[in-house]
């Protein structure tokens, strides 16, 4: 599928799961896999790093 931001081709591995982040190799935008049904994948904008993120 294509990057919603810059239209570059996004390579999403077959074993990717809902909740995983994919990054566009061209523009660097991060997307979260929100739905996955076989090869049909839906993406949403990933959350940006928050002040309380981390261990």
């Amino acid at each position: 599928m294509n990057c919603p931001e810059c239209d570059a081709i996004l390579n999403i591995p077959d074993d990717a799961s809902v909740g995983e982040i994919v990054s566009c190799p061209d523009c660097g935008a991060d997307f979260e896999i929100s739905k996955k049904d076989g090869s049909n994948v839906e993406l949403k904008q990933a959350e940006s790093v928050g002040e309380d993120w981390g261990e």
């Binding site: 799961s17 909740g19 995983e20 982040i21 979260e32 990933a46 959350e47």
Partner: peptide
């Protein structure tokens, strides 16, 4: 329980 699925959770 996760909010961002990282390699640790997998």
């Amino acid at each position: 329980v996760f909010d961002r699925l990282r390699s640790e959770e997998k």
